[in-house]
Computed example of a mutant assay.
Amino acid sequence: MISSRVHGYTHDELDQACLPRPDCSHLAHEGISALGESMRPNHASWAAKVHERLPATPSRKGGPGIRVGAVASGDAPAGGTGDPALRPLLAAWPELAAVELDGSNAARAITQVRRAGRTHVPVSLVCGVAGTASAGVRVGSLRPDEDKPWKAYAADAAATLIVEAIRLAWPTPPRRAG
């Protein structure tokens, strides 16, 4: 998952709901979003470089893919679109493609640096999606035995994607050390 926009949320324990934080919404770097879009048709071979093995779970199938879209980022883990706690987020931001944990804090820090006029620092999130509501993941759910292999696989897939995107499709080659 590559962010085109990062929307912040907070989890309300009392209501058991994820509440939108419009003050924590940030545009992502357009170049990174475009890079993700170009990887799908032009460099589909990146997925073969993922080191972790795809976990064998009957409820989850398929290898890694690339999706570019809006990401909700907050202070509590959340499931997919079927999770009732996400209804306020989906009502506020119907275009959401994923929900992740804590990336909005990094985006907020970068935005504060920009507003202070010190520098221009682009921000984007590249994250692996390890679970969905259809697989039983819910806000605050802790299923370490079942989720651990998927989290490792999703993290490896996200890292592999960004490394291969820089290697294959970045407009300017990375600098060499030395």
Rank of each mutant, 00 (worst) to 15 (best):
R176T: 10
M39K: 01
A78L: 08
R118A: 13
P173T: 06
T160D: 05
T132E: 09
D147A: 14
E52C: 12
A177R: 12
A28T: 01
L101E: 02
G82D: 13
G36T: 02
A44E: 09
A165M: 00
L168D: 15
V139N: 11
P77K: 01
P173H: 03
G31H: 01
S25G: 12
K49C: 13
C24Y: 11
P173Y: 07
T172N: 06
I32R: 00
I32F: 00
L27K: 03
H29F: 04
M39S: 00
I162T: 04
W170D: 09
L101C: 04
G80M: 10
G8P: 05
L142K: 14
A85V: 07
L35G: 00
V68D: 11
V113T: 09
A106W: 03
N105T: 11
S25N: 07
E13L: 15
L35A: 01
V163S: 13
I66E: 00
R21V: 08
R176E: 13
R40T: 15
A169M: 05
G79W: 00
N105Y: 08
R176F: 08
S4E: 11
D147L: 06
C24T: 03
S38W: 01
S73W: 01
R5D: 12
T81Q: 14
A169G: 06
P41Q: 02
P144N: 06
E95F: 05
K151Y: 03
